[in-house]
Write a protein that binds this DNA or RNA. Sequence first.
RNA 1: GGUCCGUUCGUAUAGGGGUUAGUACGCCAGGUUUUCAUCCUGGUAACAGGGGUUCGAAUCCCCUACGGACUACCA
Length: 507
Amino acid sequence: MERKVRVRFAPSPTGPLHIGGVRTALYNYLFAKKHGGDFLLRIEDTDQTRFVPGAEEYIIESMNWLGIPFSEGVGIGGPHAPYKQSERKPLYKQYADDLIAKGFAYYAFDSGEELENIRKSMEAEKKTFIYNAATRGMMKNSFTLSEAEVNQKLAAGEQFVIRFKIPDNEEVLVNDIIRGEVRVHSAQLDDKVLFKSDGMPTYHLANVVDDYLMEITHVIRGEEWLPSAPLHVLLYRSLGWENKMPQFAHLPLLLKPDGNGKLSKRDGDRLGFPVFPLQWKDPKSGEISSGYRESGYFPDAVVNILAFLGWNPGTTQEVFSLEELVEAFSLERVGKAGAKFDLEKAKWFNHHYLVNLSAEQVAEKFIPILKEKGIEVSKEKAATICGMVKERAHFISELWAQSSFFFIAPDSYDEQVIKKKWKEETPELLRKSISFFQDSANFEAQPLHDAFMEFLTSIGVGPGQIMNIIRLALVGSSSGPDLFAIMNLLGKEETVDRLNRALETIK
RNA sequence: GGUCCGUUCGUAUAGGGGUUAGUACGCCAGGUUUUCAUCCUGGUAACAGGGGUUCGAAUCCCCUACGGACUACCA
């Protein structure tokens, strides 16, 4: 019996969504769509102490910006609502109780302090404290206390947790789509807390219960969860849900670009690239972290960049739309090793997307920037300019530096060019050129070019002697688009003005 | 420390017993362009180390090294 593919993205609202998380969400989405399945958003907020206001909204806004839609979940609703674990709180206890009834879990009354002390003293002996078959007998729990004592503590309202009883001496097998068979001996596992003293389940319980209830078929999550996957397998078995256990796929981590280690919030701004999809202002410290959106990345480009960090299609195609990614994606082609973010490649991707936009589309995004600078232009003119300069930029924001001379005459001239190109005969040449332009009836780029070339030939001057000077006068530097196209856009009057100004100013 | 996961050019990766170890970004050189950018062509650069298995290993196995994750009443 084939179940309908259902996957979930289950972030914790403890801060802004990290690009590693975005990639996890993306892979989940791609997998779901590829198999005609569902993609749910579940918010895992079982830890009230770490809740950060705005984080949940941030997650949803990020996914919206990226154009990755959920089919079900928080903010959308669906047959398994609610999708926020804090709102599902009453649901979990019964499963913990069920586990206790079946002998797979037990009450424990050790205080945090007691636990900490024993961990410390074990550490002093260079041993690791594991709360399991080996140590249960020395702690305060259902095994060391009589049933009457336990009941009395419970009745007295004493604080307790419910721990999972890891089976003794067993090899636990986790079947991972990406990593194959992973085996861990139960002696290495500890009796994790399933149910906290505050009445909330821990991740482990809530996650398994909700995945079961929501009929999740594939759990695609970060590699940091691999060590606890054996516990989850055991939990499915103990709950009697083994035949409904989802398949696991643990994704490789995103690493920092320099050195090693997991990519973290600090690295991004240190290395000059965002680690968050959207700009984030920490509600407590007020600290601002940059986002891809605000940095000028296109959502399609971010999706494309992220898709290729840990996955490849097995062909040489690198530019993929979201639809194409859905078509090409498979978990089998996800790599095992952590991937480092490459800023240069990311910029290249964005540049590629920028160039592939039409001049009109680019202009639409550029006009607001011009407005901010107090410049009003027609859509047509903006589009013409964008068409001329878009391939010289990685981001929309770089367009201004590439095109400001269209709107504002240069207030200085590149010294290097002056030094190299401004010769004794230059002023005379420039004067002749000015009067040529002054007398030109046709200022269309091509005819103007042809006529000017003819003129240069007639006075016995090579283009190299004057073209750079004219560019310098018009642009202020020696770079930029086709000179005659610039003149055409500037118009005769402005062109002649700028040439005259250069003549007067230089030397 | 323990457990688990990983390791191909600087980066992302292809290749999974016989390849001149391929591609992209970056970088370098040449071409195009009156300039710069784009574009085109070429180049640079990698199988962590050691043992096996095999006629043959980047590929399979083991060990070592290195890196990472986890080791909470956090997720």
